[in-house]
Amino acid sequence: MGNSMACFSPAHIPKKLSTNLSRKPSKRSPNSSPFFGSSASTRRTKSSPKKTSQTLADDLMLQQQAIEAVLLFQNHQKNNGSQPFNRSTSVVFPAPGPKKNQAFTKSSSSRQPLSSETLFQPLELVDKQDVKIDGLETNHFVLVHGGGFGAWCWYKTMTLLEESGFKVDAVDLTGSGIHSFDTNSITSLAQYVKPLTEILENLEEGKKVILVGHDFGGTCISYAMELFPSKIAKAIFISAAMLTSGQSTLNLFAQQTGSNDLMRQAQIFLYANGKDQPPTAIGLGKKFTEDLLFNQSPAKDVALASVSMRPIPFAPVTEKLSLSDKNYGSVRRFFIVTQEDHAISVPLQEAMLESNPPEQFYRLKGSDHAPFFSRPQALHRILVEISQVPPNLS
């Protein structure tokens, strides 16, 4: 469920909501997913009453690729990123200037926004030998997945960054990835992001990290920015929820539900406490997932997602964030727009830029909602480019 939040339809949600609920244990295995089956379908083919022997062979091949990818990711973590991965050879340049008549409101940050000329500097080519680690404010990335994803989704990005000399941590949020907690029992955002806040709490004195959040991970890193501003050098939002103070993720993504039939059809609300109680989690129907989230991604990565994704807890997406200029506003923010995104539309991404402008943003052409799958090399170049931006001494 790459972006269930983008699929929320207020009409499907009971009026009586509470983010502090007494929850019964779910009958579903904590590692199971209600919306993904055990096999992955062949890319962009319609189902037929009878599968041909070739289709069955393709299904088995994709299953095997998914299992191999999981094993490769685990070995990669053990071997400190020594395993090679295929990379995209294309390079993306941000838009050279703002759209006609595009007006950005002031950021909630205490920093003054940069001029449009500075905001849209071209992204230079970054080769491995050109990456300078020494002298950076930090060379430590912490990658935070989106709703339904897990640390596994970053396997290409982790490899590329580590090969360039960076230190990388990819976190499994509570009830995500291989984290054993039952998603339906999560009752607060603080509980959901605890694995992230623990990393920051245990960070060595005087050290900083670059936080990267995808999808609902944007809400999670915003929460962390408010708590640990002195430990975060930069925050990078990848097609992510970049909220203003007093806003919830549910409020933000509900803005686009009325214009996207695919999202409304895809959403599946789970009620572990009974239909007379608020939802406990949200999933996506398998048949819609490929077109919604992975419309530009390789088949083997879609197969990996199909056996790895889990529902997203409902309570955290209803919480309103309290963000201050002093804490959240003091952290430098960057945003990456995914241009072929069917889950979080480009207009919604641009609306976030207008309501809460970052210091700089990039447009990633040819990317679906999962750029770590569809455009890993281009995404890597942007992350490295941002890491090289010198400290703001003002």
Rank of each mutant, 00 (worst) to 15 (best):
Ala272Tyr: 01
Asp261Glu: 15
Leu250Val: 00
Phe269Asn: 14
Ser239Asp: 15
Ile268Met: 08
Met242Gly: 03
Gln267Glu: 14
Gln247Leu: 04
Thr244Arg: 06
Ala266Asn: 12
Thr289Phe: 12
Ser248Ile: 00
Pro229Thr: 10
Gln255Phe: 00
Pro279Lys: 04
Thr280Leu: 10
Ala240Ser: 14
Ile236Phe: 13
Gly285Ser: 09
Phe288Leu: 07
Pro279Arg: 05
Ala254Leu: 02
Ile268Tyr: 00
Lys275Ile: 09
Asp261Gly: 07
Gly285Met: 04
Asn260Thr: 08
Leu262Arg: 14
Met242Gln: 06
Pro278Cys: 00
Ile282His: 08
Ala281Phe: 03
Lys286Glu: 11
Ile236Cys: 13
Gln267Cys: 06
Gln255Tyr: 06
Tyr271Gln: 04
Gly274Asp: 02
Ala266Leu: 07
Thr289Ser: 12
Lys234Ser: 02
Gly274Trp: 03
Leu270Asp: 10
Asp276Ser: 14
Ala266Gly: 13
Leu284Glu: 09
Lys275Glu: 09
Thr280Ala: 14
Gly283Arg: 01
Phe237Glu: 03
Ala254Met: 02
Lys234Cys: 03
Thr289Lys: 11
Gln277Trp: 00
Ile236Val: 12
Phe269Met: 11
Leu243Trp: 04
Glu290Val: 01
Ser259Gly: 12
Gly285Cys: 05
Gln255Asn: 13
Ala241Met: 00
Arg264Tyr: 01
Phe237His: 08
Gly258Trp: 05
Leu227Pro: 00
Gln256Tyr: 09
Ser259Tyr: 08
Leu284His: 10
Thr289Pro: 00
Gln265Val: 06
Ile236Thr: 03
Gln267Ala: 13
Asn260Arg: 13
Asp276Thr: 15
Gln255His: 08
Thr249Val: 05
Lys231Ile: 08
Leu270Ala: 02
Ala254Gln: 00
Ser259Asn: 08
Lys234Ile: 02
Phe253Glu: 02
Ser239Gln: 15
Gln255Trp: 04
Gln265Cys: 08
Gln256His: 11
Ile282Asn: 03
Ala241Pro: 01
Ile282Arg: 04
Ser239Met: 13
Ile232Asn: 01
Ser245Gly: 14
Thr257Arg: 03
Asp261Phe: 13
Ser259Cys: 05
Lys286His: 09
Gln256Ala: 13
Lys287Arg: 08
Gly246Pro: 14
Leu250Cys: 14
Lys234Thr: 01
Lys231Ala: 05
Gln265Thr: 10
Gln256Pro: 03
Lys286Leu: 03
Ala235Tyr: 01
Ser239Gly: 15
Pro229Cys: 05
Gln255Thr: 09
Ser259Asp: 11
Leu250Trp: 09
Met242His: 10
Ala266Glu: 12
Ser230Phe: 01
Gln256Asp: 07
Ala240Ile: 04
Ile282Ala: 15
Lys286Met: 07
Met263Leu: 15
